[in-house]
Design a protein around this nucleic acid. Structure first.
Ligand SMILES: Nc1ncnc2c1ncn2[C@@H]1O[C@H](COP(=O)(O)OP(=O)(O)OP(=O)(O)O)[C@@H](O)[C@H]1O
Length: 820
DNA sequence: ATAAACCCTATTTTT
DNA sequence: TAGGGTTTAT
């Protein structure tokens, strides 16, 4: 029997339903607070468009703002749509950047790009800046680069910038040089990708006529160019004009540093006279105390704001905790103690129900150490940081040179690492030689090196030349490896191994490291492991073949190029086999939820970050829309962190850094006026224990009536009603099975962490169709050592440890594999 | 001209 | 704690 579309909508409240089923040809903007089901509305709407409005999936674009969020989206849609046999992989889902890249690969000719244009990542643009303005110091370059990016994100060209009255001539000229460097090297930086995408949409609208609907998640994160792109996509054909759905929350705008523009909501209203605006007010995620504290946090924002009155569906009165510590080490120890103590309460939660959310990545170190000591399994969401590790970076640079003879940036970074006697001066000579020849004929790096080695090119010292020889021969042999291999993967792996062997990369990096820090390196920070992980990433990579007929390119990208490009646009975060505590930045946690959330480091200078105070000062010249209010962004960041928690929110601060015990730091001003918070949680206190059990299971309140009836029918009345007895009952992260993925997203999907906020009642949902089918809850005698006797204990509800939803595939966390 | 040894510093967040 | 920048040794 085919499932019914109505089944998908059965749990939605009225406002949600209105938004989901609104007329697709009228632009709609859903503005709502955290946990109100925005994302759920968005996914339901996609289902509505496909199943009810019969729009083919391939004509629907869904954008997100991080690679990770794109994965989330695919996961949710797959879970939702695969019962309907909808080919989810045909949906056009991704970040604005990835969508633009896909279009530009196909239509490069229409906007004056060469077919083999490359992408300049942050490391590359840094190199470009160093090359363009070598006399500036590194800090000034970074600042200039920041300005340039801000300008580009608003679509301001160097000339347009010069036309602004209070501009800086210096910035203008650096901007010009920077852009022309990129252009002459066939490179696009991240901002260019959007700009070219916009140009394509505007000048060659025909290419995009296939678009029938565009949906945007986290709309508050759009910058000007992205917004224009959205408008352009929405305007595609007269027949399907303005078919745009966006969801967002201005209070959760935390990407100002990436030029996210809060004015987007207003701009959209201005642009579409008939804009349909919907609000959602029921929060299905958090307790009332968490929502109260969160609302109080937003009170710190200086910019104007519409206050929210979110209604919580969870009535358990469990307090928010704020705990102060002498040093950050003490704080980390406290966190691990709390987790251990809570964990000692039987059946209360799984490790995967816990997240530690940090303002800055580097704060994870101490926390990791303490968790390790207590043998608490954890998982560090490393995201982009993995690709920036020295070994990983170097290996990728080598592979880039192997793949493209024109990649001078990667060449410059690898030629003398490890040292080959090719120092700054020799490199500079080589580069200027390359600059002058590359325009005329198609001389690549290796041709140039051959010239130098054979004496027909520029003259360099003999030590240098032998270094070049070594390098060249490595690169050539790698190319040979790839060309003779039976399949592309084997070729790349052979080249990989050759590079690792010949250069001894891992050892080089390790020596560099240990030279500085006198102590022994812990074995969790061995470069070998990172290199091994990179190799696994390559091995598991499946190039996404273009599904949409219109977007097939004449020449296919090589396996290696696909892989190198995928790093920037697709996330490869993987599922954890065991249940583990999550450590993540707040930014990477956006849109997710956990029953228990720790937010440490609420210390002046750490959170709010010290830099936020500096940002406002130095505006000697006009950069339109700089981050005027960096502090406000810190406020919102804290808001996002707090609202990730479903039940237990544990805030903490430290007074001094262990490393510098002289300076004492104030408690974060963000904590002022948040009302009463408990200094600690006494897990031995019976009252508290009772509250905890209640809190952790009360999510059953959000069960729909139908589900509640089902529960009651099977004897779960006590569970829905009262609380304590039910502790046992909620493996809050029952593993889910999701199948039916294919093609483009298969690989990505398979890498997921457990605790997604995909509807959290999987064990019930799955069985919803037949009240008499598999829901067998056997009564069981509970654990005799607990005062809180389990009422039921079925494998269905409490899967034994170690059972996972896994696909059976080997997996190694994308984070550095760390020993527990 | 290169490599090694040194000091300094300031530490966001992501495409 | 790693990277940038500077100085010194080869
Ligand atoms: N109508 C509903 N009934 C029960 N649960 C719901 C309903 N709508 C949403 N939820 C649940 O509420 C939680 C939050 O939903 P969702 O992630 O869609 O919110 P959101 O508004 O996108 O949050 P955020 O702004 O933090 O990203 C999820 O666990 C979701 O399953």
């Amino acid at each position: 029997m085919k499932p019914n579309l109505l089944d998908l909508f059965i749990g939605l409240n009225e406002a949600q339903l209105t938004a989901v089923t609104a007329d697709p040809s009228r632009p709609i903007q859903i503005v709502a607070g955290p946990g109100t089901g925005k994302t759920r509305v968005l996914t339901s709407r996609v289902a509505f468009l496909i199943l009810e409005k019969k729009i083919p999936p391939s004509k629907i674009i869904v954008t997100t703002f991080t690679k990770k969020a794109a994965n989330e989206m695919v996961e949710r849609l797959t879970a939702m749509l695969s019962p309907f046999e909808v080919p989810v992989s045909e949906l056009f889902i991704g970040t604005f950047h990835s969508i633009c890249i896909r279009l530009l690969r196909r239509y490069h000719g229409k906007c004056g790009l060469r077919p083999d244009f490359g992408v300049a990542d942050e490391t590359d643009t840094k190199s470009v800046m160093k090359h363009t303005c070598p006399d500036l110091g590194e800090k000034e370059r970074a600042k200039a680069r920041g300005y340039i990016s801000k300008l580009k994100a608003q679509g301001i060209t160097p000339d347009a910038y010069r036309a602004i009255p209070r501009h800086s001539a210096e910035i203008a000229s650096v901007y010009t040089m920077y852009d022309s460097y990129l252009e002459s090297h066939g490179l696009l930086d991240f901002d260019d990708i959007l700009l070219y995408g916009l140009r394509l949409a505007r000048d060659n609208g025909k290419c995009l006529d296939f678009v029938r609907h565009v949906l945007v998640d986290e709309f508050q994160d759009t910058n000007k160019v992205q917004l224009d792109l959205l408008f352009a996509l929405g305007d595609r054909s007269t027949k399907f004009q303005h078919n745009v759905t966006v969801v967002g929350d201005p209070d959760q705008s935390i990407y100002g540093f990436r030029s996210a523009d809060p004015a987007s909501f207003r701009s959209m209203a201005k642009r579409y006279e008939n804009l349909h605006q919907v609000n959602l007010n029921t929060n299905y995620r958090s307790t009332a105390s968490i929502l109260n504290v969160s609302e109080a946090i937003m009170g710190h924002q200086t910019a104007k704001r519409t206050s929210k009155s979110l209604r919580s569906i969870c009535s358990v009165k469990i307090p928010v905790v704020h705990s102060k510590h002498r040093t950050n080490n003490d704080e980390a120890r406290w966190i691990s103690d709390q987790i251990s103590m809570l964990k000692a309460m039987p059946h209360l939660f799984e490790y995967s129900d816990v997240a530690i959310l940090l303002r800055s990545r580097f704060l994870s170190r101490v926390v990791e150490q303490e968790l390790m000591k207590k043998k608490i399994p954890y998982h560090l969401v490393q995201g982009q940081a993995f690709w920036d590790l020295k070994v990983v970076r170097s290996m990728l640079d080598y592979l880039r040179v192997v793949s493209s003879d024109l990649d001078v940036l990667a060449f410059s970074r690898t030629i003398n690492f490890p040292a080959r006697k090719v120092g700054a001066v020799s490199l500079e000579k080589l580069l200027s030689q390359f600059q002058s020849s590359v325009g005329f004929n198609n001389v690549g790096v290796s041709d140039m090196l051959i010239g130098v080695i054979e004496g027909t090119g520029i003259k360099l010292g003999s030590g240098v030349v032998s270094g070049l020889k070594e390098y060249l021969s490595l690169i050539q042999q790698c190319r040979e490896d790839i060309s003779v291999a039976e399949n592309p993967l084997d070729g790349v792996l052979a080249a990989f191994d050759r590079i690792a062997r010949t250069t001894d990369l891992a050892n080089c990096v390790r020596e560099e490291k240990s030279k500085r820090s006198k102590r022994e390196l812990r074995d969790d920070e061995l470069p070998e492991n990172d290199l091994e992980e990179l190799r696994n990433q390559i091995r598991e990579f499946e190039p996404a073949e273009e599904i949409l007929e219109d977007l097939k390119t004449e020449t296919e990208q090589s396996f290696l190029d696909s892989f190198l490009e995928s790093i920037h646009f697709y996330s490869a975060e993987k599922e954890e086999a065991q249940t583990k505590v999550t450590i993540s930045t707040i930014h990477a946690a956006k849109g997710l939820e956990w029953p228990i959330v720790f937010v440490p480091g609420l210390t002046m200078g750490v959170f709010p970050n010290y830099n936020a105070f500096k940002a406002d000062e130095d505006e000697e010249f006009t950069v339109p829309k700089g981050d005027e209010n960096a502090i406000d962004e810190e406020v919102r960041c804290f808001y996002v962190a707090a609202t990730r928690s479903q039940r237990l929110l544990m805030l903490s601060s430290f007074e001094r850094r262990a490393i510098d015990s002289e300076t004492s730091l104030e408690v974060s001003p963000l904590l002022k006026g948040l009302g009463k918070m408990e200094p600690k949680l006494d897990t031995l206190d019976l009252g508290i224990r009772k509250l905890l059990y209640e809190a952790m299971t009360k999510k059953f309140q959000s069960v729909s009536d139908e589900e509640r009836q089902l529960l009651e029918a099977i004897g779960g009345a006590a569970i829905v009603g009262s609380g304590i007895t039910t502790a046992l009952y909620a493996p809050m992260n029952a593993p889910r099975e999701v199948s039916g993925l294919s093609g483009r997203f298969k690989r990505k999907f398979e890498g997921q962490e457990g605790q997604r906020n995909l509807n959290r009642l999987p064990h019930i949902n799955m069985e919803r169709r037949g009240a008499n089918s598999e829901v067998s809850i056997s009564s069981a005698t509970g654990h005799s050592n607990s005062p809180l006797q389990p009422l039921v204990n079925s494998p269905k509800f409490a899967p034994p440890r170690g059972v996972t939803s896994g696909t059976g595939k080997k997996r190694l966390g994308m984070g550095r594999p760390r020993m527990m």
